[in-house]
């Protein structure tokens, strides 16, 4: 198999249809009143919100803008509103700065210089807001995690990844860009650099030290059981880089699963207690 950008090409109309059908089907089967999701103004959440609006209607899709002082940019808000306007879904904005401040002030061990721990509070606080809205309004929480970030664990455990369904989790970031373009999201959103917005100036590719175009091909190779040497050779990359990505992928499995327990009884949740998800 030759690892080249075209291997990531999919039939975008088919992909769009599948995702729309998936969202609609799950909302109907759950008898939920709609979809609520955290809307950062980035490509992933704008794409998912737009697809949800196409699937179940904009009036049943609510994007929550949850900015906070340190990472706030007017561009993000503009982009979120741009997508909302184009696809007709609802938005609501809540400044989470006071909530965060209350947390920081009331936590004895809080350390402002530990930016990762602090950033994770932001992602988890957003999750609380999104789930509160879902509970109150009888809606489902829709995740916007993509496959690249999910595979390498580039997300906050129980934070941004927390959701009832994650419609684009089987699409790599570069594929999400193509899908976004296909459904007609504005160019400024499609070409925007990804950021988890956990601290000021945070950019995903800078932090990861790799471009998504390369990362996605590495992950694609790993997904198809290719050897690291083969991937390195084909991409003209160092084997150490491929190994680093591979290690990150396998070591982050704990972030993608139900909590581990030790087996003591006949059937165990998360192990061999196996039920369908959508039994009626």
């Amino acid at each position: 198999m030759k690892l080249k950008p075209s291997v990531l090409d999919l039939k975008w109309t088919e992909v769009e249809t599948k995702i729309r059908r998936f969202i609609k089907d799950y909302v109907e089967k759950s008898e939920a009143k709609g979809i609520v999701l955290g809307l950062s103004g980035g490509i992933d959440s704008c794409t998912v919100a737009s697809l949800a609006a196409l699937a179940i209607g904009g009036d049943k899709t609510l994007g929550l803008l949850l900015p906070e002082q340190e990472t706030f940019t007017t561009k993000d808000v503009e982009h979120a509103e741009l997508a909302a306007e184009k696809f007709g879904f609802k938005t609501e904005m809540i400044d989470i700065t006071p909530t965060l401040k209350a947390f920081y002030d009331s936590t004895p061990i809080f350390k402002t210089t530990d930016k990762l721990c602090k950033g994770n509070i932001k992602a988890r606080t957003r999750m609380i807001y999104v789930y509160y809205y879902a509970n109150r309004l009888g809606m489902l929480v829709c995740g916007a995690s993509d496959k690249s970030e999910t595979m390498i664990g580039y997300f906050t455990k129980w934070g941004d990844v927390a959701a009832d369904i994650s419609p684009i989790m089987d699409l790599y970031k570069t594929q999400v860009r193509k899908l976004a373009q296909h459904i007609g999201l504005p160019k400024e959103i499609v070409t925007k650099q990804a950021s988890p917005a956990l601290w000021p100036g945070q950019l995903a590719e800078e932090e990861l030290g790799i471009k998504y175009e390369t990362l996605d091909l590495i992950l694609y190779g790993l997904e198809r059981f290719m050897k690291t040497e083969e991937i390195a050779q084909q991409l003209g990359a160092k084997k150490e880089l491929i190994n680093k990505i591979k290690l990150r992928w396998v070591s982050m499995e704990h972030k993608r699963r139900m909590p581990l327990t030790t087996k003591m009884q006949y059937r165990t949740v998360g192990a061999d207690f196996r039920l369908p998800r959508t039994l009626h």
Binding site: K18, R21, F22, D25, Y26, P276, R277, T278
Partner: peptide, 8 residues
């Protein structure tokens, strides 16, 4: 046809 546990 249809969707069952994410399988289409």
């Amino acid at each position: 046809v249809g969707i069952e546990d994410g399988l289409q």
